[in-house]
Design a protein around this nucleic acid. Structure first.
Length: 337
DNA sequence: AAGTGGAGCAACCGCCAGAGC
DNA sequence: GGCTCTGGCGGTTGCTCCACT
């Protein structure tokens, strides 16, 4: 961690337009208080205005980061649960280093947090595993393999680990070393037909019949065989999904307003809001309203909407369902460059 | 007790995209 | 179309803590 820079000496800011008096380094408790109070009273606006109006000698970007990664009231603190770890691995295998999109599916977690966790912990485990695995890891005689998290690896992951092992001699095991999709993502992509927006899974990957996905041009939630899935149909008014059924939104879906127990959730402006809803009462499409988040909505969480008053919490998710569905869900918004 | 190295993590850096002029 | 500003994102840095020797 960096020391606070009370005199603002260390000021080679990347933004050349920022005056040199701006502070850098660790945030002091006083600065945190200022920013927190300002955000709670005024809500999010232009971040450079936030910095100025809150009386902070910080650039807007710094304020934004501090708020998103540390001060936001809906942040979940503490160690990652095994379920979260497993979900991160699954999502990373699908999305690569798209931390913000991974974070969008982990309520209360930030992209920075997940990125740090991956780089410091999971990557190391994968590396250790790849270095200790036999070179013939792709020769899977058994149907199930224990993965690094102690759970059973999916078919995709077994193949991915095989790719890891096959490539470990020629690459530096760097799924996070570039902005391109990770090795896992690339491996996974081999399992997905890239020619169709419907992305039919190949090679006998099992697709749960009760879960569908959205193609990029229609609102129809499809099954792998092209038939409508049993959940996830958008209606003309944007509502969909029977109560109690699992809905998995597409990554780059339209903005939604999540309504639960009369608490309206303003899900705009930030793409850290998309969540997997296991028991949403209703979800209303919300494409037109670009209002700025307001204080009362901030109090119920800008970014992810999982705060003290909300009765839907991470620990209450059906992670078993979540993992099963996510692991086989062909998210549509990523491409292999 | 002192030194050392790794782990964890907050924050910065640099790039990019979109909006506005 | 070009420029500037702003927000967002992924990669990286560097500081602190802590276990180990």
């Amino acid at each position: 961690m960096r020391k606070p820079d009370p005199l603002g000496k260390n000021n080679s800011n990347s933004n050349n337009n920022v005056p040199s008096k701006l502070r850098k380094g660790l945030w002091s408790p006083e600065e945190d208080d200022k920013l927190m109070n300002y955000m709670l009273n005024n809500g999010q606006g232009c971040w450079s205005d936030v910095a100025r109006n809150a009386g902070l000698q910080r650039c807007g970007k710094s304020c934004r980061l501090r708020w998103i990664n540390y001060l936001r009231p809906d942040l979940k603190r503490g160690a990652f649960s095994p379920q979260e770890e497993e979900l991160i691995i699954h999502l990373h295998s699908l999305l690569g280093n798209r931390w913000s999109q991974i974070a969008a599916r982990l309520p209360g977690r930030t992209d920075n947090e997940i990125k740090n966790f991956w780089n410091s912990t999971i990557k190391k485990r994968l590396k250790n595993l790849s270095s200790t695995s036999s070179p013939n890891a792709s020769d899977n005689s058994s149907s199930e393999h224990r993965d690094v998290m102690g759970g059973f690896m999916s078919m995709q992951e077994q193949g991915l680990m095989a790719m890891y092992n096959m490539n470990s001699s020629s690459t530096s095991l760097s799924p996070s070393s570039s902005s391109s999709p990770s090795l896992q993502s690339m491996a996974l992509n081999h399992l997905i037909n890239p020619l169709s927006n419907n992305m039919v899974l190949e090679h006998g990957i099992d697709m749960p019949s009760t879960i569908g996905f959205f193609n990029s041009t229609s609102t129809q939630c499809m099954n792998t065989n092209g038939a409508p899935a049993s959940v996830g149909l958008f209606g003309e008014n944007g509502t969909f999904g029977a109560e109690g059924e699992l809905f998995v939104p597409p990554l780059e879906s339209a903005n939604f307003e999540y309504v639960k127990n009369e608490n309206t959730y303003d899900d705009r402006n930030t793409n850290t809001n998309n969540c997997l809803f296991s028991n949403a009462d209703s979800i209303i499409s919300n494409n037109s309203n670009n209002n700025v988040n307001k204080v009362d909505q901030l109090n119920s969480g800008v970014g992810n909407n999982w705060v003290g008053g909300e009765d839907l919490r991470i620990g209450e998710w059906d992670f078993e369902d979540l993992m099963r569905d996510v692991s086989s869900f062909p998210f549509l918004d990523f491409q292999v460059e």
